[in-house]
Design a binder for these strands. Structure first.
Lengths: 157, 157
DNA sequence: ACGCGGTATTTCAAATCTGAACAACCGCGC
DNA sequence: GCGCGGTTGTTCAGATTTGAAATACCGCGT
């Protein structure tokens, strides 16, 4: 707290630990997911979001927001998943500008096939290291950060 | 803890919170860094690592390990930074296979110019939300994850 | 009904990232 | 001293990601 233009060693250590470890964690878990299922983490997240959506479908924009993807990235990504038969793209009936991504049966099957190993992977590399208090702290901390970020984004419009 | 092949709702919530919020946090902080200084977060991290190294220089391999970059990515990235005059590349005297990345005066100046705003940004979006206990918890948790990952990597060789 | 500012998505080119294959070199053991 | 397995970086081609510009459409106000 000494200088507001800087960070204390403890603050810097926390920031660095988060940046580096989360990077390493994601990389590792993605590697394992890829090896076990052929899906990237992005593929997996697309499948999860669609599987949770009513009627297994979402507007491109909504899906992009949930995944934190730039619009053009989602267009491209859904394109590759469509080629593999994991999702389908359909024009949105209510709004002719829009389109929806729909989870196919094959996509749902791929998700179900990949999930157990993947969750095991998450458990092995993250959850098993944490006790209940850690878990709660992580959830609370990151949820709060997210809320603040979303609020800050709303302001800067 | 019910099924070892799955995750409890609390565990899943923690995992999702970490993945999404850290993603959003990084994106946001990178945007601000870019807007204020023209540096990407990767640029900034390269500069930081070099500035901390003895004689302001590091072997490509060591730098790549610190940054969690694939080798070819670092080659490319140092190439772009070299064009901008932020770093220089020199053959390694002790090992003729290797090369070293060296921080230039311009690179150091760029880092010093960018740091205050960037740290403010980190403070605003992360540190200000945390009390001392949170800070310590984050550091402890992510440091432990990192140790485990590094250990696991060593095994799978 | 019409125009118009705004929104949803795609397209395009350029920048970046990845992994496999390569070239040069190290140093150990024969 | 030589050869060989292992290391260090780079190169290359292809995949992904980005941001700006284009396209098509919405719905409000007139």
């Amino acid at each position: 707290m000494s200088d507001e233009r800087s960070l204390s060693p403890a603050e810097l250590a926390a920031w660095r630990a988060v940046v580096e470890s989360s990077q390493r964690l994601l990389t590792r878990i993605e590697d394992e997911l890829r090896a076990a299922s052929g899906l990237s983490l992005a593929d997996y997240h697309v499948l999860v979001r669609l599987s949770e959506a009513p009627d297994r479908r979402l507007r491109m924009g909504d899906l992009a927001a949930k995944l934190i993807f730039a619009p053009s990235r989602l267009t491209y990504h859904i394109g590759t998943m469509e080629k593999r038969g994991l999702v389908a793209r359909q024009p949105c009936p209510a709004d002719r500008r829009g389109s929806e991504a729909v989870l196919t049966d094959a996509g749902l099957a791929a998700l179900r096939a990949a999930a157990p190993e993947h969750l095991l992977s998450v458990r092995r590399h993250l959850v098993d290291d944490l006790d209940e208090a850690d878990l709660a702290a992580l959830t609370r901390i990151f949820t709060r950060i997210d809320e603040r970020l979303t609020a800050a984004r709303a302001e800067s419009r």
